[in-house]
């Protein structure tokens, strides 16, 4: 039996992405490099043979998925409701969390300019984000980060797959924002961490906001339980 046949069998039997390391567990003879080679082989084979599926790199692993052109046929079987698309606020919040993780609710709300506890809960219910820790300081607020399921939902290989700020049409680099010093300017050019640029939020404003939001949340929770 060839390594690529073993790898294919493992991929075929799995309904979730598997890492090369996980696939290698199938046989003592296999190591990660061999698995990668086998995957390469399979990919070429599926392409050449014109198979309706391919090996897709997703969520830091590999999964056999159908090619997009077959969607119209497969959608006919959609009698099991699939998770609906995310709403605008949910996507916006998720984008902030993806780029700034670990991040707390107050910071998310400062960036969005609106209360976000409901959206955060929804994202958590849908397993797209999870609590990844607690911040230091008053009340030790919860910090959120994205999950593997998040990568799967968007078909991202890893967080590196997220659009990089410098690829965006919005000009953040060409001009120094007012009040930004050299240091900050340097950090703007740093990919994948756009957020670091805005770390120095006014403490007072944040604390006040915190108070308000906490109050409101407390009220809604009582209302729900009552």
């Amino acid at each position: 039996m060839n390594p690529h046949q073993i790898v294919e069998a493992v991929l075929f039997a799995s309904d979730a992405p598997l890492t090369a390391d996980e696939i290698a567990r199938a046989d003592e003879m296999l190591d990660e490099d061999q698995v990668e080679d086998a995957l390469q082989y399979l990919r070429a084979e599926y392409d050449d043979a014109g198979r309706s599926f391919e090996v897709v790199e997703v969520a830091e692993g590999y999964q056999v998925l159908t090619r997009p052109e077959y969607a119209p046929y497969l959608e006919r079987f959609d009698n099991v409701p699939r998770p609906s698309r995310l709403s605008g606020p949910a996507l916006e919040t998720l984008a902030i969390i993806a780029y700034r993780q670990p991040i707390g609710r107050i910071e998310i709300e400062y960036i969005r300019g609106v209360g976000s506890s409901g959206v955060i809960r929804t994202l958590q219910d849908r397993r797209l984000i999870d609590v990844v820790g607690r911040a230091e300081g008053l009340g030790r607020p919860l910090l959120y980060g994205t999950t593997t399921h998040f990568l799967e939902h968007f078909g991202f290989k890893s967080l590196e797959d997220l659009p990089r700020p410098e690829e965006l049409p919005i000009v953040l680099r060409d001009r120094t924002p007012l009040g930004a010093d050299e240091d900050e300017q340097a950090r703007i050019e740093e990919p994948s961490v756009i957020g670091d640029l805005f770390e120095g939020e006014p403490e007072a404003a944040e604390a006040g906001e915190d108070q308000d939001v906490a109050d409101v949340e407390g009220e809604t929770e009582t209302a729900e339980s009552g």
Partner: peptide, 29 residues
């Protein structure tokens, strides 16, 4: 700073929306 950051986040979420749509056209086991 807040406006630019917010605008960027909005752009990113638009791209995530299209990634989501692409992914939903592929099916697994």
């Amino acid at each position: 700073r807040r406006l630019l950051e917010y605008e960027q986040i909005r752009e990113i979420s638009a791209r995530m929306r299209s990634a989501e749509a692409d992914r939903s056209r592929r099916f697994g086991k």
